[in-house]
Amino acid sequence: MMAKQSEYPKKIISFDLQIKQLIERGLIINNPELAKDFLKNISYFRLQGYWWEFQNDKTNHEFKPDTTFENVIELYTFDRKLRLIIFDAIERIEVALRTKMIYYLSVEKDQWWFENKDVFFSESFFKDSLFEIDKELDRTKEIFIESHFKKYGKDSRPPAYKTLEVISFGCLSKLYSNLSNEIGAKNRIAKEFNLPNYNYLKSWLQSFNVIRNIIAHHSRLWNRNIHFAPKSLDKPTSEFITVPNNINSLYHSLSCIIYILNKVSNGHTIKGKLIRLFENNQKRYLTEMGFPENWKEQLLWK
């Protein structure tokens, strides 16, 4: 039986009481007014995900000795900068995927291939995808979609080169994953991402979409285990890493992202931005992300 809302034990407390509670738990707050300003703009609950790292006793919420509020904000800022860099990286991968799916599948089939159930493996997934596509077409305010419907009417969907530009990365990756294995473009696209076959690209896209969604919701990323891990690439065709024991680590996923970018975004500066971010912050942040001691010696990160 669900508890009544009135029985929920935790109540909202004032900013002053939030600060008082943190001090009583051992957090050093040298400037309470500045801390209050942060708590007014970054919620107590959101910051809790970061100061968890600094607590000795997580049941009683007691902080490790000499932990300051500034330590928590530094970690929060590190994570925010990390998310911004990775969002840029995934955007480039997403654009490359759209481009390749539009081109190769339209050439192999036709410009309305996404409406053809024979192109796909699962009919139920195909119907779900069409439902998502129609929602996006109905919701979008893109001029090129509105102009298409005005000129050609709404009895049929726009061709792939227009329609696929307005669907989400999640829908796009589902379309790819559900392509029939008989479709030649499925493997061709995977190889253009520097991967052996569609099984790898399907897995990697799923992982990247999980990370993208974490970032889109402004959620904590830095020490996450990615539950849909990218499929282990034991025989890469260019510089990569030794596959770590924990393939769910953020280190593994970030390495996979850089590996793909090296193929589809020539001259990108994402790796350099990440290395500078890592070098300017606490080493323990990297440990929590799964980075090994010798990460700089790995071919991908040199």
Rank of each mutant, 00 (worst) to 15 (best):
S203D: 10
S207H: 08
A185R: 11
L137A: 01
D88V: 04
W52A: 04
I23S: 04
I28S: 03
K36Y: 02
E182G: 13
F131L: 15
I260Q: 05
N56G: 09
H268M: 00
S147K: 15
D134Q: 13
I214F: 09
K235G: 01
L130A: 02
Q282W: 14
S106W: 11
M289S: 06
L164W: 06
L39F: 14
K127M: 14
Q18R: 14
T242E: 13
S14T: 15
Y152N: 05
R220V: 09
N71C: 07
I226Y: 06
R224Y: 06
H148Y: 15
S265F: 12
I143P: 07
D234G: 00
Y251K: 05
Y76K: 10
K11Q: 10
V210P: 00
F126N: 02
E70G: 02
E165N: 06
L47D: 01
D16V: 10
A3G: 04
V72A: 00
D110C: 04
N56D: 11
K186N: 07
L179G: 03
E53L: 13
M101P: 07
A3Y: 13
K127V: 12
P9Y: 09
T99F: 04
L300E: 08
N116Y: 07
S255H: 08
R224F: 10
I189G: 02
N209E: 08
V166M: 07
A89D: 01
P230S: 07
Q21I: 09
N178L: 07
N194F: 05
Y176M: 05
Y285P: 01
M101N: 04
N199M: 07
K127C: 11
E7Q: 13
L34K: 15
E91S: 12
L286P: 03
L221H: 09
I133A: 02
K263Y: 10
S173K: 06
P292W: 09
Y161R: 12
L97P: 01
V166Q: 06
P32L: 01
T287Q: 14
M289D: 00
L274F: 03
A185G: 12
K81L: 07
H252K: 04
P65N: 05
A89T: 03
E62R: 15
L250W: 08
D138P: 03
A216D: 04
